[in-house]
């Protein structure tokens, strides 16, 4: 039961706390990274740099890399 974790409660709590903190950090990192990239993309598109030309650019790069 909760509240009675036996004589080794400290280790159990520590294990769960560390996992929670590290996973929260990982989730935060992935989420914040996603937001910042989405914002950067939106800013660039607002400036009028179009996706179509970017796609051509990417394709050109990809075909150059494949050669």
């Amino acid at each position: 039961m909760m509240g009675n974790l036996g004589e080794h409660a400290a280790f159990i709590v520590a294990a769960y706390a560390i996992v929670a903190i590290v996973l929260a950090g990982l989730i935060a990192w992935v989420t914040l990274d996603a937001r910042s990239q989405a914002r950067l993309l939106a800013e660039l598109e607002a400036k009028g740099v179009s996706r179509r030309s970017a796609r051509k650019g990417r394709k050109r790069q990809a075909s150059e890399a494949a050669e």
């Binding site: 992935v30 990239q37 993309l41 740099v49 996706r51 030309s53 970017a54 650019g57």
Partner: peptide
């Protein structure tokens, strides 16, 4: 993370153009 990485590559490509 994969969708973010794709966005990151789009941002890079847009910056190049």
């Amino acid at each position: 993370a994969m969708t973010t990485e794709i966005l990151r590559r789009r941002v890079e490509a847009l910056r190049m153009t």
